[in-house]
Simulated assay, not measured.
Amino acid sequence: MKGVDDQAVKVVDIVDTFRLQEQPPFDKKQFVAYIKKYIKLLTPKLDGEKQEEFKKNIEESN
């Protein structure tokens, strides 16, 4: 075929578009520690009323 680049790299559109990267696997203990740290960093960025609702909903899902 003329005009076809044999060296072209095929990628998954969504992975390429959002520049997604594979993450190392977590065991349960590592995952819980990561999420707790994320929650601790996220909570202060919410408004007062949203903070309380967020904390309440997080505790219910544990």
Rank of each mutant, 00 (worst) to 15 (best):
V15P: 06
P24F: 01
K45W: 00
E53S: 11
L41G: 07
I35G: 00
K45R: 13
L46K: 08
K56R: 10
D27N: 15
D6S: 12
T17E: 15
N57Y: 05
P24E: 14
Y38E: 10
F26H: 10
M1V: 08
K55H: 07
L42N: 03
F26Y: 15
E53W: 05
F54I: 07
K40G: 01
G48R: 11
S61W: 04
D5T: 03
Q21D: 14
F31L: 14
E52T: 11
S61P: 00
K2A: 11
F31S: 03
K2Y: 07
K40I: 00
S61L: 10
E22D: 13
R19K: 15
E52W: 04
E53I: 11
K28C: 05
F18G: 06
Q7S: 15
N57F: 01
V15T: 11
V9M: 04
Q21E: 15
I58A: 04
V4C: 08
K37G: 05
P24N: 12
K56V: 03
E49Y: 06
V12N: 12
V11E: 12
G48S: 12
V12S: 06
L41N: 09
K36G: 02
K56W: 03
D47P: 05
I14L: 12
F18M: 14
V9C: 02
F54H: 05
P25A: 13
D16Q: 15
V32T: 10
A8C: 05
K56S: 08
E59P: 00
T17I: 10
Q30F: 02
T17R: 15
I39S: 02
K2W: 06
D27V: 04
S61F: 07
V15Q: 10
K40W: 01
Q51G: 07
N62E: 13
K56L: 06
P24H: 09
I39W: 03
K2M: 04
